[in-house]
């Protein structure tokens, strides 16, 4: 019996720079068409500007107490009102953005710096190294990000540095998992094996091929995790175990304001809203980036 020949449709080796540029342009267009992602990026930009330019935008000192001005409702003088110690809430939120953004970015950088190398080594080398690293990741996962952060704070104490370390460590296993998966699938790819055959050193192969090719998913994943670390860090603050008062960290503000929800609810509404918006901003931007750069990550 005869089968009609089934020719492969020609894929066409893509290597020209122009083609890559076109793809990048298309990516940018896709990102900009994604209204949600644009909204997310704008929200982040807004908070970044508010944080950076806070001294220019408000004349209030975020930490100066003025008990006679305590619990002023939102008004022309204090757009978002004042807290229990008479501090301007808007000023505190603007300055507080500095801490929130810094904590989010630094914590995720820390998690990336620890988790990605471990994951890549785990996936690339396999064997007992892989097993040990995976068990460690399992153990960290069993704590979950927030409990791990809490535990670390219990040990190393509270404060800004602790919060960054704690929130960062909280998501390390997720980064190990991601990087390991990347290394495993890239390891199978032909060119990595070719590099092996030419006898180039293993670690060089690892760095050159795998790290470069897994960069995109890692960037996307990192963006998606900034939101989570911000939630964890603010959660610590809310429990009084994070950045300490009088630093205007949003979670800490919310934790202090909680006592007054019955007669000054706005004191908790705004810091919470700020946390929510920034996390939403990172998540929307991350979702958008993922759709453009690496649709395979979509879950």
């Amino acid at each position: 019996m005869a089968e009609i020949a089934v020719p492969e449709s020609g894929g066409g080796g893509g290597d020209s720079l122009a083609r890559r540029e076109r793809a990048q342009l298309r990516g940018l267009r896709t990102l900009l068409r994604n209204k949600a992602a644009v909204f997310g990026i704008l929200v982040l930009l807004l908070f970044a500007v508010l944080a950076a330019a806070a001294p220019l935008l408000t004349s209030y000192d975020p930490t100066e107490q003025s008990l006679s001005d305590a619990f002023l409702k939102p008004s022309g003088a204090h757009l978002l009102g004042t807290d229990n110690l008479g501090r301007d809430i808007l000023a505190r939120i603007m300055y507080g953005g500095r801490y929130t953004l810094m904590i989010g970015v630094l914590a995720v950088s820390l998690a990336t710096a620890i988790g990605v190398p471990l994951g890549l080594i785990s996936g690339y080398l396999g064997g007992w190294v892989d097993m040990v690293i995976q068990r460690i990741a399992d153990i960290m996962l069993a704590f979950n990000p927030f409990l791990l952060a809490l535990l670390l704070v219990a040990v190393i104490g509270v404060g800004l540095k602790s919060v960054i370390i704690a929130a960062g460590f909280g998501v390390v296993p997720q980064f190990i998992r991601l990087a390991r998966g990347q290394a495993l699938s890239l390891r199978e790819e032909v060119y990595v094996q070719a590099a092996d055959a030419f006898g180039s050193k293993r670690m060089t192969t690892l760095r050159r091929h795998i790290l470069r090719n897994s960069l995109t998913p890692i960037v996307v994943f990192a963006t998606l995790n900034i939101g989570l670390t911000v939630l964890v860090a603010a959660g610590l603050g809310f429990l009084g175990l994070g950045v300490q008062s009088p630093t205007p960290e949003w979670g800490t503000m919310l934790g202090e304001a909680r006592e007054y929800i019955f007669y000054a609810s706005y004191t908790s509404t705004f810091p919470g809203l700020a946390i929510f918006l920034v996390v939403l901003g990172f998540n929307l931007a991350g979702d958008g980036l993922r759709d453009v750069l690496d649709p395979s990550l979509r879950a």
Partner: peptide, 20 residues
């Protein structure tokens, strides 16, 4: 929208909002 808002919502703030 509900999904992305849900994963961005600080539980502690949501709790406070619901109480209010």
């Amino acid at each position: 929208m509900v999904g992305v808002m849900g994963i961005s919502m600080p539980v502690y703030w949501l709790g406070i909002l619901l109480i209010m």
